[in-house]
């Protein structure tokens, strides 16, 4: 079946019941989405589906034909990091970092819809995602910084 990941069409040869996470990590060799629980309880596997934060570990690919899937790799790269990535680096918002890709995708989904999201909205949006190292204060700061960067970018955009 066909899947659109990070703007590229892919022919996927996998059982349609396969959760997206294994297709991303196995077939497409993408690292960012992580296995955390396989139950939709921790958010380490979060990706965007049509702009919405989604647990890839419980989403079978058969539900995703024709939808736009974006992983952290689709936002930016080590050489050309996206605002959210620059914000997390600037705030040093990681300890072990295993949960961070999922955090960033959930934050990205929020900020794409509402770049003016306040602290309460950011906290509420990140509620499904767990961090075990206790990096929460930095994650919140990084998302607020990313929001500012996105607002500035938006304001500076030509008409």
């Amino acid at each position: 079946m066909k899947l659109n990941v990070n703007g590229q069409p892919h022919d996927i040869d996998a059982d349609p019941r396969t959760p997206l996470l294994y297709v991303l990590r196995g077939d497409l060799q993408l690292n960012a989405a992580k296995f955390g629980c396989g139950l939709g309880q921790c958010g380490a596997c979060t990706v965007l589906v049509d702009g919405e934060a989604t647990f890839s570990c419980v989403t079978p690919i058969l539900a995703l034909e024709g939808k736009g899937i974006v992983t952290l790799e689709g936002l930016g790269s080590n050489d050309h990091p996206a605002p959210i990535q620059r914000a997390f680096i600037a705030e040093q918002a990681a300890q072990c970092g295993y949960c961070i890709a999922g955090m960033m995708m959930r934050a990205q989904a929020l900020l794409q819809k509402n770049p003016h999201a306040g602290d309460a909205e950011i906290r509420a949006a990140l509620e499904p995602n767990l961090c075990r190292c206790g990096t929460h204060m930095r994650i919140l700061r990084a998302v607020r910084r990313a929001a500012q960067m996105m607002q500035t970018a938006q304001a500076g955009e030509p008409q």
Binding site: L30, N31, P81, I89, A101
Partner: peptide, 21 residues
């Protein structure tokens, strides 16, 4: 000093034993 391991971890570069192929 900024941590040397964070850029890879926030851009999806293989950084963990879980990512080994």
């Amino acid at each position: 000093i900024q941590r040397v391991d964070i850029p890879a971890k926030v851009t999806g570069v293989a950084a963990y034993v879980q990512d080994m192929r």
